[in-house]
Design a protein around this nucleic acid. Structure first.
Lengths: 121, 121
DNA sequence: CAGTATCCCACTGGATACTG
DNA sequence: CAGTATCCAGTGGGATACTG
């Protein structure tokens, strides 16, 4: 029986958990779709992310080397975000997930209502 | 500028959020690695999942048609879980993510300590 | 064995106000 | 413009006890 390291470091649990934060994947996909973006651009594009969560999530993605942050010494300040090479290498995998989600959405929604499960995990 | 439906239903946000629950992906991968498993097998394999969360997560995966649940009328009861066809169709994508995580773990950990970011998203 | 049922805490994440 | 700084609510998820 194969198992997945409850103790010690586990790449699945650690790395993937970053992507699966509420906003992580969404920000990566948005950056990929629009190339370089400023802080407010990202916020407008996503629409319902708070200023705080955009900051926090961008910092985490930056810490993992998925997103780069460039500050221009201007007034008013301009800060540009874009995917790093590592961030870009993740995009095809995320797109596969998105495609899978789109392809399976109808069937899944149907099944949920059939079974009348309310609980969300 | 492309954006991702803040209002209404968004497959990325909804479907993917199920997988990105703390245990969702891990259970799917575990089931794939071991084929049919009983409740206690899964719990032992993952090691540090509580009984409650295993139940809750399995019910959610079942509601989305990713996992099937078969009850055998025996004493003591026997319940077997396995991936559905839809669940199986997701496995290659998850494996890609796992492979990516494994391949990038060292570099990412290095970068995190370099930048001394503590905050986890 | 395979769950429910409670209780409860920590943390995620939103709202608001303030600043270089 | 691009953030911090607080404060606070909701809920994800753990521990424990009980059951068909």
């Amino acid at each position: 029986m194969q198992n997945f390291h409850p103790t010690g470091f586990c790449p699945i649990r650690d790395i993937i958990s970053r992507l699966s934060s509420k906003w992580g994947m969404l920000i990566l996909i948005t950056l990929n779709a629009n190339n370089t973006m400023r802080f407010n651009d990202i916020q407008k594009s996503i629409g319902d992310i708070s200023q705080r969560m955009l900051t926090v999530t961008l910092r985490a993605l930056e810490a993992d080397g998925l997103v780069s942050r460039t500050i221009y010494a201007e007034v008013p300040p301009r800060v540009e975000y874009k995917l790093t090479e590592r961030g870009n290498s993740l995009i095809p995998l995320l797109k596969n997930l998105v495609d899978w989600a789109i392809a399976n959405t109808d069937a899944i929604l149907q099944e949920r209502t059939d079974k009348k499960y309310e609980e969300t995990v």
